[in-house]
């Protein structure tokens, strides 16, 4: 229990770093938000159709626009993809700084920036390996499963076992993601102490093997909380329309509170992993 309290305390200490990461996500989102706003404003300018949207989601209001303007949302769609790709590269930087502050127990912004720059390229290597492992497993399992199943409706007595198999594979994939992520964070933490890439890769695997149960528990806990936050958002907000600025503002504040909590949760998960990997005293 005291361990959890310790990790929670450390998570709170990370608030500045969490805030920087949150703000970076926020600004990436804001770029898209502006583009969406501009596109919608041009399309709907002056139309009373917006009154329907103010009452809640209205498929007709969106689809009439999509049908009458083939280009509707196309520039925002393209922008969203570019933003995500750029963010992925930036995320390596943010994560480097973040893990550095946790490893060094120095939660200052200066430390965060120093760590980020210092470890960017090796950490990009870890990210590359993670992505590769993630894709290889997905492709491999997908290939094996589809070649085993063939035409699912001829192989199985009905679609039910097929659906259950798919659910099982999604869970398996989630489990694999947990393992890859655990390795990726652990290896990076060890790299900060001894800058040998190969050694860190190996140490990462060893540690994950050693604490397999704990890593898996942490992974499912993080996934569970993420899913809970998503449901909480839909449960509380649903689609409350936009009948007043007050409702719009409350919606945005709630949305951003959850976004901040998500980033905080990541800090919590890093601290948990760090706690499993004390700095070796040689």
């Amino acid at each position: 229990m005291s361990k959890v309290a310790h990790v929670l305390k450390e998570t709170i200490l990370q608030w500045k770093v969490v805030f920087i990461v949150y703000i970076s996500q926020f600004f990436f989102g804001l770029i898209l938000a502006y583009s969406m706003y501009a596109e919608m404003y041009t399309s709907y300018d002056g139309s009373l159709a917006l009154e329907y949207l103010a009452k809640g989601f209205d498929r007709t209001v969106f689809m009439d626009m999509v049908n009458s303007q083939n280009e509707m949302f196309s520039s925002s769609r393209g922008l969203a993809i570019i933003l995500l790709i750029v963010y992925c590269f930036m995320s390596v930087l943010l994560q480097g700084g973040w893990l550095y502050t946790i490893r060094k127990k120095e939660f200052s912004i200066r430390s965060f920036l120093r760590g980020g720059w210092k470890y960017y390229f090796p950490f990009l290597g870890f990210a590359g390996i993670s992505l590769l492992l993630f894709l290889l497993f997905g492709g491999g399992v997908g290939y094996l499963f589809t070649s085993w199943v063939g035409d699912p409706l001829m192989t199985f007595s009905s679609e039910k076992p097929y659906v259950l198999w798919i659910i099982f594979l999604v869970c398996l994939y989630a489990l694999w993601t947990i393992l890859v992520w655990s390795w990726s964070v652990t290896a990076r933490l060890h790299y900060i102490n001894q800058p040998s890439f190969i050694k860190a890769v190996k140490l990462g695997f060893d540690k994950v093997k050693q604490n397999l149960g704990k890593y898996i528990a942490i992974g499912w806990l993080i996934i569970g909380i993420h899913v809970f936050l998503m449901f909480l958002y839909y449960w509380i907000m649903g689609d409350r329309g936009a009948s007043s600025w007050y409702i719009v503002a409350v919606g945005i504040i709630f949305q951003q509170t959850i976004a901040y909590s998500r980033v905080l949760l990541r800090g919590f998960s890093y601290s948990l992993v760090e706690d499993l990997n004390p700095i070796p005293t040689e």
Binding site: A33, M36, Y37, A54, A242, G251, I252
Partner: peptide
């Protein structure tokens, strides 16, 4: 513009 802001957000 309230719904526009909402959906942009």
């Amino acid at each position: 513009s309230k719904p526009l802001v909402k959906y942009a957000a």
